[in-house]
Amino acid sequence: MKKFMMLFVGEDYPELGLSPEQIQERMGKWFAWNTKMREQGIIATGEALTYKIKRVVGPDRVVSDGPFVEPKEVVGGFYVIQAESFEHVVEIAQDYPDYDLGNSVEIREVMVFE
């Protein structure tokens, strides 16, 4: 088994004007996906991120506040999971609930040092 990270990229929900009904529906899908992965025992860790960004740059450690990228390119959360291959993760990522909002999943393999 290898380790992979799924990064969730896209606009933050408040910008999308979702109604309470839509929020609940979406939450139900996230919950179902989380439960499914947990039952398979593949989740190593995962978090949702706030959209506040600070960046420290250069030899002078200059600190600046975002935004740095387009709102739809911000990482809003991640999971680290165990899977056999990229293809396997792609399959798992089918259940990500926010594709319809134009959001996407980026998959990266965690590097292993022998």
Binding site: I23, Q24, F31
Partner: peptide, 16 residues
């Protein structure tokens, strides 16, 4: 109220 629902959306993903 809207903020609260959005908070729940993120917070309740793993446990309700």
């Amino acid at each position: 109220v809207q903020d609260t629902f959005l908070l729940a959306l993120k917070k309740w993903r793993t446990a309700i």
